[in-house]
């Protein structure tokens, strides 16, 4: 029991206990009733985490997953007032702070599962379909809701029935598909580099492909431009690459 002199002292002391039942209670607080709050708060945070990470949960198993969620609430100082950010904070906890022995791919898998939520709830309104543009001559940019995941592990194939033994570089694009639902596409290193170029500076497709050729140490010949244009058209069809509105 810790005697607390001020309101803020009481709140910090009780908060510590709510996150970690081993921490001392503020004096004057009933232990059983404090346990009621610990359970309510733990379950509440857990409900947001569970909803976002079904695959990571299934891979880890219920006992380890529960311990991980408790560790997250105990150890990670969440800052966001938005409940939809709790899963993002969970991914940050896994990548920055969690000291538990976990499968080496778990944080990347969680980042992949979170990307679905991030893409669907992004503040941007649903895109309206625009007529196809000339991808070589138009200025192009990236849809702001799209996320590029450059993973060391093949996270899109991981599940309780299959876990990778060794890393395998994997590029994934998560974007708004039909009715704003998250959709996923695999993308190779050249496509990733092309998207990086468009992300860095809005430019015409031709200019981006010329820069890409430079990076790859290849001439920007008609064959490269033609296959690059095909890629850009496919990305534009998915709404990943958009005609720069500015």
């Amino acid at each position: 029991m810790i005697a607390t002199a001020t309101l803020a002292d009481f709140q910090r002391c009780f908060g510590r206990h709510l996150r970690d039942g081993r921490a001392a209670l503020p004096s004057g607080i009933d232990r059983q009733r404090a346990a009621v709050y610990r359970e309510l708060l733990g379950n509440n945070v857990r409900s947001f985490v569970d909803a976002c990470f079904p695959v990571a949960r299934a891979c880890l198993g219920e006992r380890r997953w529960s311990a991980l969620c408790r560790g997250f609430f105990r150890e990670w100082p969440g800052r966001s007032p938005w409940f939809r950010d709790i899963p993002r904070e969970f991914v940050e906890y896994l990548t920055q702070a969690c000291r538990r022995p976990l499968p080496p791919w778990l944080a990347e898998l969680a980042g992949y599962e979170w990307a679905e939520l991030a893409v669907e709830t992004h503040a941007a309104p649903l895109a309206t379909r625009t007529p196809p543009c000339d991808v070589l001559e138009s200025r192009l940019g990236l849809d702001p809701t799209m996320r590029r995941l450059a993973c060391a592990w093949p996270v899109h194939r991981i599940g309780p029935d299959w876990r990778p033994r060794k890393p395998q570089a994997t590029g994934l694009l998560v974007y708004r598909g039909i009715a704003g639902r998250a959709a996923f596409a695999e993308a190779g290193p050249a496509t990733f580099a092309l998207l990086d170029l468009l992300d860095t500076a809005s430019q015409t497709g031709r200019s981006a492909l010329q820069h890409l050729a430079e990076r790859l140490g290849r001439p920007a010949d008609p064959a490269l431009l033609a296959s690059g244009a095909d890629t850009l058209r496919a990305l534009a069809d998915l709404g990943i690459v958009i005609e720069d509105p500015s």
């Binding site: 309101l7 908060g15 996150r19 309510l40 708060l41 509440n44 100082p77 800052r79 966001s80």
Partner: peptide, 24 residues
């Protein structure tokens, strides 16, 4: 009520019925 202890607790907790809590 209050729902943070410096970081978010994401649930509603009771305030002590004190003059300090009233003012704050």
């Amino acid at each position: 009520s209050w729902c943070d202890d410096g970081a978010r607790l994401y649930d509603l907790l009771p305030l002590p019925f004190t003059e300090e809590a009233v003012r704050w």
